[in-house]
Simulated scan of single mutants.
Amino acid sequence: MHDIAAIALALFLIAVGASHFLFPGYFRTLVPGWFPWAAPAVAASGVAEILVGAMLVVPGGRAAGGWAAAALITAYLASHVDALRHARRDRPRLLDRPAGVVARLVVNAAYIAWAVTVALTAPGGS
């Protein structure tokens, strides 16, 4: 089961990382307005997700990759908490409304739990 969870997380991160380059405009909307370098942050986080995903593909890198994924996704919580501060019910995008932002936070907490589980169940991960 561990291999399936690790490979699935790897594929997820690689796909999302690649999406940063395919749809950079969308990902720039997730960067808080107070952060001055949205475009470089989107590119850097895309590269980081691809690299972390690659770590998870290699059986010997799964513990470190799981912890790296958990740290990376935890760093994204700043964006979601900032979005919660600015969420309003009248926003056109569901993900910018209070319920949508709360859903984003819950989903990201699940991603963090997934990554921690992969790290802890990898050989040498605990």
Rank of each mutant, 00 (worst) to 15 (best):
A87S: 12
A38Y: 00
L120Y: 03
A38M: 01
A63E: 03
V106D: 10
R91W: 08
A75S: 15
N108I: 05
V42Q: 06
G124S: 01
G46I: 07
A44W: 12
V81I: 12
V31A: 01
V47W: 09
P24R: 09
L94H: 12
G100M: 02
F12Y: 14
V101C: 01
A70Q: 01
A15T: 15
L95P: 05
V107H: 07
I7P: 00
T29S: 14
R62Q: 13
A87D: 04
A48S: 07
L11I: 13
V42M: 05
L13T: 00
L105F: 02
G100L: 02
L120T: 14
G25V: 09
L84T: 00
D90T: 14
I14A: 10
R93W: 13
A115K: 00
A5E: 11
A70F: 01
P59R: 04
V16W: 05
G124C: 04
G125W: 04
G46F: 09
A39I: 05
H2Q: 13
Y111W: 15
S19R: 10
P32Q: 03
G60C: 07
V102H: 06
H2T: 11
A122Q: 04
H80Q: 15
F35D: 11
G17R: 00
G65M: 02
A5R: 13
D96M: 13
N108Y: 09
G124H: 04
A6D: 07
W37A: 15
Y76N: 14
T74P: 08
F21E: 08
F21W: 11
A122C: 06
P92L: 12
L56H: 03
P98T: 06
R28N: 08
D82P: 03
R89W: 14
M1A: 15
V118S: 00
A103I: 04
L94V: 13
R62E: 01
T74C: 11
A10T: 02
R97F: 09
A75Q: 12
L120M: 11
G66C: 03
L11R: 05
A70I: 02
W67V: 07
V57Q: 08
A18E: 10
S126W: 11
V31R: 00
R97K: 12
P123R: 00
H86T: 09
I73E: 07
A38R: 12
A87T: 05
G17P: 06
L56M: 04
I73K: 10
T117Q: 11
